[in-house]
Every structure is written in C-alpha cells, then in structure tokens.
Amino acid sequence: MRAAHWLAPLVLVTLILAAWETSVRLLGVPAYLLPAPSAVAYAMVDNAPLLLASAGRTLGMALAALVVASVVANALALALGLSPLMESAVRPLAVVLQATPIVSIAPLINIWAGLDHPERAVIGLAALVAFFPIFSGAITGLKAVDPDLERLFKLYGAGRLATLRRLRLPSAVPFILEGHKVAAGLAVVGAVVAEFVSGSGGAQGLAFRLLEAANRLQTAKMFAALILLGLMGAAAHAAFQGLETWVLRRWRGR
C-alpha cells in the first residue's frame, strides 16, 4: 500500500512526459514554442554548471533574505510583545506596508541598494516579502496563550519579562515555525520576482537565466531553469516542513 502511494506520482509524471514527448513529435511543434522533454533534458545537462551556479545564487539570496527577515521580524515582534502601546503604534503601519504590492517597491529598493549591488536589492526585496509571515506568526503566537496559564502566572506574581520568557515565547513556537515555513517559500518567490524587476543581470540568479534564455528563444533552457526553480522551492518547503515537524515533536514531546 505504502509503495503504491510512493509510485503513484512517479507513474503520473512518466505518463505526462510520455504524452508530451509523443505529441510534440507527432504534431511537429516547433522547439521554441514547446520543446520535447528530451530536449529539455539535453538543455539541462548542457547548461548544468551555469544553471546550478545560478540556482545556488538564487537560493543563497533567498536564504540570506530569510535570515534578515527572521532576525528583524522576531526582534520587532518581541519588542512589541513587551509593550502593547508600541504594538498599537506599529500595527497600522505594518498593515499598510503588507498591503503594498512588493513589485511596486522594487525600483525604490534598487536605488537604495545602489546599482553596483544588485544582489542587495534582491535580498532586500525578498526579505520584505518573507518578513510578514514571520512577523504576524510571532505576534499572533505571543498572544496565543492559554488564559488559565496566564492567570496562573499572574497568581504566582510573574513579571512581564518572566511571563514573556517562560510563557509567551514558548507558546509562540509553533506559530513562529509556521511563519518561517511560509516565509521560506515566499523568499524564493521574492528573490525571483526581485531579480525580474531589477532588470539588470547583475545578481546572476536563475531568474536572470530565464530572462536571458527567453530573449534568445532558448525555450528548452527556460524549461530547465523552471524545473530547477520548482525543485528548489519544493526542497526548501520540504526542509522547513521537516524542521517544523522535528521541533514540534520535541516541543510537545511526541
């Protein structure tokens, strides 16, 4: 039974690829419109060093963005957790910022990062996208405290700092993890979008390879880059899912 569930997606992919390959060949679709899977595989192998290097750069920028976003978002959430007044002050700002389409901020970030540092612009934009899920996860988590536990802390005379450290922070762990999981996926998306928008090829990530291949009508290479992107996103998601499961198991003991 388990084996069947493992095999099912493989079989489906094989079927799709086979149908794709035969229909492209039989119908004589031009390669620049839709290359056959075999052509994509060739393109992947031919350009492997270049594509992998670019994928590494995109992944690196996304991870850097995630780290930046995590540090800033958690620090800010903690500060706001200590002061309800500060939270009321910041909340509307955060909402407006979150509602602003990130793409529209890109040119501004490009100017700030400086034309000589395109990767900084990409990291900055991706961090901005990754910031909100972590921030709102942490803020929500810091408040998601069992009211009776809160009463208990009050009964035993716990101060604000002790309550934060011993009650609210540990209560927030599942929410913070969930926030990071969502943010990890968004950071990759953000890095790609940012690179598209920044226009120059300076950051040399996968998105640039996509644009480059598109301009040259190397559709097979585009597909190869897209597949790499997809795999990267899935791997990032799986890694964080695994991390989340592992930490949560330790957190609640099973």
């Binding site: 069992d146 009463r151 208990l152 009964l155 011993r166 540990p170 957190w251």
Partner: peptide, 11 residues
C-alpha cells in the same frame, strides 16, 4: 488554583 483542565505548559 487548580483549573478544570490541567493547564500545564505543553512544552
């Protein structure tokens, strides 16, 4: 105080 639920810290 002991509440209706055990109200333990799950972590």
């Amino acid at each position: 105080v002991v509440f209706q639920a055990p109200t333990l810290m799950p972590w």
